[in-house]
Amino acid sequence: MSTDPPPAEGERVLLVDDSQAISRLLRARCQELAGVESEMAGSLAETKALLASGARRFFVAVVDLNLPDSREGEAIDLVRAHDIPVIVLTAHYDEAIRARMLTKEVVDYLLKSSLHEIDHVATLVRRIHRNRDVKVLVVDDSGSFRAYLVRLLELHRLQVIEAANGREALAVMQSDPGVDLVITDYNMPEMDGLALIGALRQRHPRSELAIIGLSEHGTQALSARLLKNGANDCIAKPFLVEEFYCRVIQNIEQIELVRTIRDSAVRDYLTGL
């Protein structure tokens, strides 16, 4: 009988692919690039068995679109039913399939045609693993659109806080200084996005807090004003989900990079002091 301790909750990757070569390569790259262990399944039936033995140990799953017993994405639906974020892998890109996958609320839809793409998957796994320590404040007076943004961010395992306008957002920032990213709409009552960004920049420089402004499609002048007033980035609505995720990830990683550089400048490499 094994005496190894059970895996910690939410610390493993579920790899679902009928190609043993792809699964082994993914497992190796996830270990090297993300520092996380993986478990492999080669079919829908094996996936069911692994999930039945304890789904909560998986923080993300990488699932092949086509399996011998899952030709219509049944394995993706099964994993999503356990509230596990899914990165979909496929050998071929197809616009119709991409659109169908996004309706399933997956993290991303990626090719597995080269080592570069495999490394992209492993890098995304690392990002999702780190996201659990990242706080994002979403500011929008539209409850429905705010809920939409929150859902997108939670799919990437980010910690999300909400505010309905600029004044609420400032109160949140005052009580929770650990926020890493603010995503704010422009058109809001009491205090709009432009005023909010200006107020935030008086207390938080770009190197410590990332801000993404949201503007209506076609208002380039407003986007420029948001950027000049202190936003790190600006996204026009409506946006593609993939673009939204790319902008969010880039801004989070920019803040993390600055923190790493600053820490290296004041910490001894050998002793950590």
Rank of each mutant, 00 (worst) to 15 (best):
Q174P: 01
L158I: 07
Y186W: 13
P189D: 10
Y186F: 11
N165P: 03
E154S: 06
Q159I: 12
G198K: 15
Q174S: 14
Y186S: 11
A195T: 14
V179R: 02
A171W: 07
N165G: 07
E190C: 14
L158F: 14
G178Y: 06
V150S: 10
L155W: 06
A163Y: 06
V182N: 00
I161R: 15
H156L: 11
V150D: 05
M188D: 03
L158K: 01
M173K: 04
L155G: 06
Q174T: 12
E190H: 15
G193F: 00
V179A: 09
L170E: 03
V150C: 11
L170G: 01
Q159G: 11
G178L: 08
V172A: 11
T184L: 05
E168H: 13
M188Q: 08
L194T: 06
A195H: 15
E154P: 05
E154M: 08
V179F: 07
N187R: 15
D176N: 14
G166N: 02
L181H: 00
V182Q: 04
D185P: 05
E190M: 14
P189F: 08
L170R: 03
N165Y: 08
L170T: 05
E162N: 11
R167T: 11
R151A: 12
N165M: 07
L155P: 03
E162F: 04
N165C: 06
L181R: 01
L196N: 02
T184V: 06
L181K: 00
V179D: 05
A171R: 12
P177E: 06
L158Y: 09
L152K: 08
R167K: 15
H156M: 12
V160E: 00
